[in-house]
Design a protein around this nucleic acid. Structure first.
Lengths: 355, 355
DNA sequence: GTGAAAGCGCTAACAA
DNA sequence: TTGTTAGCGCTTTCAC
């Protein structure tokens, strides 16, 4: 910058103005400065700028490095497209509309120099995918800059001051279960969740039970399985367990997420159990894979792109001081995708991108 | 940082050490510092760090804000997943392996304060999706930091010094065309490209012609259409044009990308022309949508995730000074996805994530 | 419209 | 092991 200033015979202040506010500089001067910059290959340092102006024009997103090992054997990367990709897209879009760029980073292990800290130090505010980051660290960081929590209710009271956006887990599972109960007339439903208590899964389970209760089906007598992880492998294992259990086989396997449901489809196929003729299977999430498997998976679609957009909007509101003092809490609606695995008619040939 | 130093009774240098190199500080001291930092809610400023150390630990990616308006009506965001999403994923992954975060930004219009410049000023090096950025600007920036060009051959001689990664467009189209010619015995093939000269599309067209020539089919007599844009709408229009043209209808529509091919499938369905029975249709790219449409689209899959990974690797090599003086140029292999729209047997039910 | 000067918060020698 | 001291390259009053 000093070189540019010298070469064009102005002060560094003027060079700065040319970049920050071109109109505040006489056109002739501006031209000279820009020419000099071009010749010298000058690119303003974002770091110096940020340091001097205490803002970066960048939003951040931290997400878990979550790659289901069970998906590794899928040839196509497309099929494995994760939540995070969609959230990234939504957030980038919304950020861009407001002139922000997006810094993304999947979580690595901690240490004083953890990844969040790195991101936090380089952005004006950021979003975190639920439980990607240790609560305590988040608490410290959130004292200095806006943070929004995504997907998953407030994990901890010490994080109560954070904005957060979640998805209607309970309602979604409720609707899906009602569909099975009322539209398909099923009665013996097995719910398959996860050991480790997850607020999302708990909410889904609540929805399941509520639907059962309303339909006069005693949820207490329904088999409920809690697997150690929500992977395809565990989904397959769950299906095997339920098939081998004594007593009447359930009429439907209601999984807490798509990955397990997909694993179950594979296991059932191996056993020669036909879906949906012999048994209905449902998932939750609406990952792309859910539509690709045969039979296509009936599931509850989460609006992940919207989630990302909302995150960015919320952050920007805070940065502009347009948000109130109270933390904002949004719940995004989900939608039911009725596909083949519950016995619904699959969209026929020629149907493009339809549900 | 000064506050943390004071509170813990050490100098700022020691605080710095605690974060940069914890082992160089006695454990007791370290604890005191970390405690103070926690109490004060201290988060190191990435900007100040970058400024002092002249490196950011961040890689960048600039991509076009390319959203086919024709895809807007697809309900699912999944289906519309773009190249850029996959490149982002690959690049983030590879960057993370080396301890870098990723800053992403879609192109906006210029001005002295253009988006690239913004990104460039905040990263140690970055990748650009072909023709996202004005040549001249790129040239200037690339004098200061490593830049890699993605997908699309060197656009300009002034950018010859850049590393770049591209995809085997010509070979891919060649293989696909051969498949149509030899395996399906088709003879009248129509190629549909784009007006605006695109190096990728040209390469694909070369592959098409080469295959025709080798099969003894005179490419000169084959219909060739150049549409203004490579969107679904234009693909549909192309199909209509070709169907309404006088003379024998082609046995296959060979599209230069998937989006146009998908548009054509829709148009053909409207006209009651059956694919692949009446006519074969192929695309290029392997976007997720290509597998979702019915009939599923035969296409050439580009390894977009790999592209992103390579970009990051290349940049990191440069940053480490491990790359030679000469620009590196990589060409990634593509793969043929034989699906239903060319008359190949579609993968049956129960096939998970298969081609 | 333009310049001078004082930091912004950190790292990296170099000393101690 | 820890402290001292220069900057890093910009923005931002406040003068002119």
């Amino acid at each position: 910058m000093y070189d540019v200033a010298e070469r064009s015979g102005v002060s560094i202040a003027t060079v700065s103005r040319v970049y920050r506010n071109p109109d505040s500089v006489r056109a002739a001067t501006r031209e000279r400065v820009m020419a000099a910059a071009r010749e010298l290959g000058y690119v303003p340092s974002g770091n110096a700028r940020g340091l001097a102006s205490r803002s970066t024009g960048v939003l951040g997103l931290c997400f878990p490095d979550y790659a289901d090992p069970g998906t590794a054997d899928i040839e196509d990367d497309d099929a494995a497209m994760l939540y995070s990709d969609q959230i990234i897209r939504g957030m980038e879009r919304a950020a861009r509309r407001h002139g922000y760029a997006l810094l993304i980073a999947a979580s690595l292990e901690g240490g004083p120099e953890s990844l969040v800290a790195k991101v936090a130090g380089r952005v004006d505010g950021f979003a975190v995918l639920a439980r990607t980051v240790p609560t305590e660290e988040l608490e410290v960081i959130s004292r200095r800059q806006p943070v929004v929590m995504l997907a998953g209710p407030r994990a901890d009271p010490s994080l109560d001051h954070l904005d957060h956006v979640e998805v209607a887990n309970e309602d979604g599972q409720y609707e899906l279960t009602r569909h099975l109960l009322n539209d398909h007339g099923l009665r013996r439903l097995a719910y398959i969740g996860v050991d480790e208590s997850s607020p999302d899964v708990e909410a889904r389970f609540r929805g399941f039970r509520r639907a059962c209760a309303e339909a006069g089906v005693d949820a207490g007598t329904q088999p409920v399985l809690r697997m150690p992880m929500m992977t395809q492998a565990e989904g397959a294992r769950a299906a095997d367990l339920l098939c081998e259990a004594t007593g009447e086989r359930p009429e439907a396997f209601v999984f807490a997420n798509d990955q397990m449901a997909v694993g179950a489809l594979q296991a059932l196929e191996r056993r020669g159990v036909r879906v949906p003729d012999d048994i209905a299977v449902t998932g939750f999430d609406g990952i792309p894979l859910s539509r690709i498997v045969r039979p296509s998976l009936t599931t509850v679609r989460q609006p992940m792109v919207r989630l990302g957009e909302q995150a960015a909007e919320l952050l920007i509101d805070r940065l502009r001081g347009e948000a109130g003092a109270d933390p904002v809490s949004l719940m995004l609606p989900v939608s039911l995708a009725r596909r083949a695995s519950c016995g619904c008619q699959e969209a026929g040939p020629g149907t493009f991108g339809a549900v």
